[in-house]
Design a protein around this nucleic acid. Structure first.
Lengths: 297, 297
DNA sequence: ATTAATTAATGCCAAAATCACATTAAATGG
DNA sequence: CCATTTAATGTGATTTTGGCATTAATTAAT
């Protein structure tokens, strides 16, 4: 069964007249007759009852007509969709990100993606910093956001966002933005921080900040999740250090003290496989590049 | 996009190797290369990334592979189903029948149909005797059961079942099979009968039975539905005359008196359009013919 | 580094499929 | 009975598809 035959068949089925159908199909009538005969022979099924005067569908023909219509329109959709994917206008992009990114870069990037490529679906998955690299290599995600710097010849990465840190305190803590002087003021507090295995470079950065003020943080609780950390601080279980973008993230009863004199910054990078030819990725990168972030420094 | 190209494409997509795929498709490798090129040109989409050493699907190719698989298996199903319909082994038969037929001929015919042609679905609709003719001509039903005799050059009919009449009485009525002599015994009773418009020949036959006994039935209630008539008789609202097959139809508290000396018979015929070429109909007729009825006379 | 082996693409010709034109055959209407 | 309509058929031209030999590019091995 060839597609040409199905199309010719539909032509005859809707005209019920070989000569007229042939005209509409831009072929000669004998060619059409023969293609229909051939289709009938291949199937072993009479599709039209015809005498020299009338042409009508048999029951099998009527069935085939309905199905063939469907198949052909399906095929048209498939063509179109294949072309869209080729142009990167349609498809799926799998994004791995640390939890914190959903408070900063991810919303504007997804907005830009939706605007520029409405047919691209984003699939987000929260990934530990130290796992992102592997997830990229294993083709589990197509693009990732990461604070950890890393170098690999198969992965391209690009810094897209820079932000400073804030000290997170319970709402009723005696320190306020006004009387805050330096981190040394919290040297005897216990800390709630992300575990080192979730991102060693980031963790070390936090420790360095404290050490410069002459103390090592006394860590009482650990959590991967920013929201969990905030919740623990809210309940007086410790203080924390977090990227400033969390300041706008929640309605919890905590306060954020800006650390004017602390030079450390965390850099959020976007990373992807160097050899990835998926056109959807290219368009995702385009959409991401067009976003201008209000870098919070 | 031609069917052949899709099949070749699937071959290469599953082997990811042109030469091996060509072998499995029983064509030479250059022919295969060219068909794939052609498919790619038609779509304007690169489907494989190939260098001299490796062949792999692009994202668009991966999408097409999934869809093409579906379309091709769909097409195989369509072929098969079309052939089944052609042979009359599959499809739908619309049956019009008087309510009474579901107590006699319909169950064994449907059983035979199910046995011989399990893929044929029967669609039953209860039709007034006088409407069946029109329903056949309008293509609302494909075959009908009818007691009314009629002649039409476009309709074929065939008597399949003959039965005698019984007198239907409330269970506590003074007449019994033992003391029954003739219909004249109920000449002063009121009758529950089908209306004349529901089947005039049948109605006239009932009246004739009474008139030979010297009375015209005094009709108190009318109903198309046998079950309704029985219900009315059960509740002492009259007596009735019905085909004997109703005797086995229900658990109502009525009694059926056989009319030994009454010569009238009702003949159930099967009717269909003479020019109907639907192979499902032919197989239905075949299935119906193979049924042997216990004619109740 | 040179050679051998692998493999997709290309040039070219053969085979097959498709098509068009002319004609035929059957049916209908006047 | 003749003119008209219309699907089928015969035949040859055109297009498409396929096969063989070869090429070009890449990898593996000596």
């Amino acid at each position: 069964m060839e597609f040409r035959q199905l199309e010719y068949f539909l032509g005859v089925a809707s005209e019920l007249h070989f000569s007229r159908a042939a005209e509409k199909l831009f072929i000669a009538q004998p060619a059409l007759s023969r293609q229909i005969q051939q289709l009938e022979d291949n199937l072993g099924v009479l599709l039209f009852e015809r005498d020299k005067r009338n042409v009508k569908l048999t029951s099998a023909g009527e069935y085939l007509r309905e199905e063939a219509k469907q198949v052909i329109s399906q095929l048209e959709n498939i063509s179109k969709r294949t072309q869209q994917i080729h142009k990167g206008e349609s498809g799926e992009i799998r994004i791995g990100h640390p939890g914190s990114a959903i408070y900063s870069v991810i919303p504007p990037i997804l907005t830009s993606l939706r605007t520029n490529f409405p047919e691209i679906k984003a699939k987000l998955s929260e990934v530990l910093e130290d796992d992102l690299f592997g997830n990229l290599k294993n083709y589990q995600v197509d693009v990732g956001f990461i604070r950890e710097p890393f170098v690999d010849k198969n992965i391209v990465s690009k810094v897209i966002f820079e932000e400073s840190f804030v000290l997170v305190l319970p709402e009723n803590h005696w320190i306020s933005q006004e009387n805050f002087i330096s981190l040394a003021q919290v040297k005897y507090e216990s800390f709630v921080l992300p575990p080192r295995y979730a991102g060693s470079a980031y963790y070390d950065l936090l420790v360095r900040m404290c050490e410069r003020e002459g103390f090592a943080p006394n860590i009482s609780h650990e959590s991967n999740y920013g929201a969990t950390i905030l919740r623990l601080v809210e309940h007086n279980l410790g203080v924390s250090l977090m990227p400033i973008s969390y300041k706008f993230s929640s309605a919890m009863r905590v306060k954020f003290i800006e650390l004017m004199d602390v030079p450390e910054r965390t850099h959020l990078s976007m990373a992807w496989r160097k050899d990835d030819t998926n056109p959807v990725l290219l368009n995702f990168l385009k959409a991401a590049e067009s976003v201008i972030f209000d870098n919070v420094v």
